[in-house]
Design a protein around this nucleic acid. Structure first.
Length: 476
DNA sequence: AGCCTTTGACCAGCG
DNA sequence: TCGCTGGTCAAAGGC
């Protein structure tokens, strides 16, 4: 993900999804899109986009991002909390129906014969890790035809966002609104996925060195061991229409791909002046991950990279060098030495609030607000309970809590532990006190919690993954 | 020696 | 059934 570098999110520019089964066009929106969930603060202004024309397609495979970090993500539909819509008698009418039962993602406009309370959507949440800039991407997502989850899935967002009253026209024909959705996914979403309790379990599994479960993929790759026998049968290519991820990358960014690939084919594509190259993961494992690289027709020095499948193994050892122990030690030193509350809430109004992260630390009886710069390093003392993460809940109250704060990229979190109602402002390298650390185990089943990675306690694998997830900003 | 890319042939899907 | 197209194979050669 880190190699996607957004430079042009052109307002009203169109991105088309051309699945064989689904034809959808979503329109991107200006950066100033601001929406909120039920109780989540979203403010997206002047952020620095890091993805470039990044599109995500979902078809047949619920593991949207697993190619990036196999086994380390949840399906996103499980991690977008609390934007439960309240439709009145919604009727879902699939616009595209395929006899292929493998197709699980179908554009499904929601119609309603009465009113429909449009749920608002969390569009931007600064990453829970303080040093992470805002990654933004435009995502084209097809909705689930079922859509019956308690929590609406991210796959439902295009419908819920773009939904309109569907009314018959003069000819009494039902006009379906163009499925239009402006969904901006940030690293926060990935953090949400990464920090989900069940991901935590996966992390713990990793720490216990349990075998990696090979993810299920909906398309197959013929094993290399097949001989070129005349009677051999190719894997049904029909299923290979699964496109997991497509993004536009510069040549430099492509080089940052941490995985190792072996080119196995090149094809001149009709209508394209550039050949298309096919790569397989060159791991010793029989890995189904592939990528297709083709030079962009429209943008100079840009390549369209399509990732398919999943890596069923860990990332190879990085090409870059860094000393994890040194990193941990430094983090530890910073964490222990910079733990102080530097401001009180009364000063919030006067502070330079650009790129401020507001974390809302809550106890059932008391509220304690902390404000962190997005550049803050959220470090904390060693605590066996925290293992790899600090646990915070993501209940967000209101930005009004911080007065006239004109901050962009506001995020509020809730911790469980603090007893004080005093707001606390943390500057860079602030440390969340012990008292605000909550036991992981006690919140394992709570979908509304996120975790702040505890890098000092991370295994090397997790640390590498975390760094990768955060665009390689911690070490290169 | 091992891993990579290149490249022509092969194959499935589709119209 | 046939031809086109895109995806894949695997031998050959390069590094």
């Amino acid at each position: 993900m880190h190699s996607c570098n957004a430079t042009s999110l052109t307002p009203s520019s169109a991105i088309s999804e051309t699945s064989p089964h689904i034809q959808t066009t979503f329109k991107t929106s200006p950066h100033t899109l601001t929406t909120t969930t039920t109780n989540k603060i979203i403010s997206l202004q002047n952020h620095t986009p890091h993805f470039d024309d990044f599109t995500l397609s979902y078809e047949n495979n619920p593991d949207l991002f697993s190619m990036l970090k196999s086994n380390d993500f949840l399906p996103l539909e499980n991690v977008i909390p609390n934007s439960n819509p309240t439709p009145t008698n919604p009727i879902r009418i699939p616009t595209t129906i395929s006899s292929n039962t493998n197709i699980s993602a179908i554009i499904t406009p929601v119609t309603t014969n009465t009113t429909f309370t449009t749920p608002t959507l969390t569009t931007t949440i600064p990453t829970t890790t303080s040093a992470s800039p805002i990654f933004t991407t435009i995502v084209n997502i097809n909705t689930s035809i079922n859509g019956t989850n308690h929590y609406p899935t991210i796959l439902d967002f295009p419908i819920f966002i773009g939904q309109q009253q569907i009314k018959p026209n003069n000819n009494n024909q039902t006009i379906f609104p163009e499925p239009s959705a402006n969904i901006e996914i940030t690293t926060a979403h990935f953090d949400l996925a990464y920090n989900h309790p069940s991901v935590l379990r996966e992390i713990q599994r990793k720490c216990n060195q349990l075998p990696i479960q090979v993810p299920q993929t909906s398309f197959g790759v013929m094993p290399n061991t097949l001989s070129r026998h005349p009677n051999r049968k190719f894997w049904k290519r029909k299923n290979n229409n699964v496109k997991i991820l497509e993004c536009h990358l510069s040549a430099e960014k492509i080089k940052e791909d941490p995985w190792t690939w072996r080119k196995y084919g090149e094809k001149i594509i009709k209508g394209s002046s550039h050949p298309r190259s096919y790569y397989k993961c060159s791991s010793f494992n029989v890995c189904s991950a592939k990528k297709i690289v083709e030079k962009s027709k429209t943008k100079e020095n840009t390549y369209v990279v399509t990732y398919k499948g999943h890596h069923n193994h860990k990332e190879p050892k990085r090409k870059h060098k860094f000393d994890i122990d040194t990193f941990r030690n430094n983090s530890s030193k910073e964490g222990l030495s910079t733990a102080k509350i530097v401001e009180s809430s009364s000063n919030v109004r006067n502070m330079d609030s650009s790129n401020v992260v507001i974390t809302h630390f809550d106890q059932t009886e008391n509220i304690n607000t902390q404000i962190l710069s997005t550049q803050s390093k959220v470090l904390y003392p060693k605590n066996e309970l925290t293992k790899n993460h600090l646990l915070v809940s993501q209940e967000v109250v209101s930005s009004s809590n911080v007065g006239n704060l004109s901050s962009s990229n506001v995020m509020m979190l809730q911790f469980d532990e603090p007893k004080s109602s005093d707001a606390q402002v943390f500057t860079r390298e602030s440390t969340i006190p012990y008292s605000q650390i909550k036991s992981i185990e006690s919140c394992d089943d709570d979908d509304h919690h996120i975790l702040i990675p505890n890098m000092r306690a991370m295994s090397e694998d997790i640390l590498l993954d975390f760094n990768h997830l955060n665009g390689g900003r911690f070490f290169s």
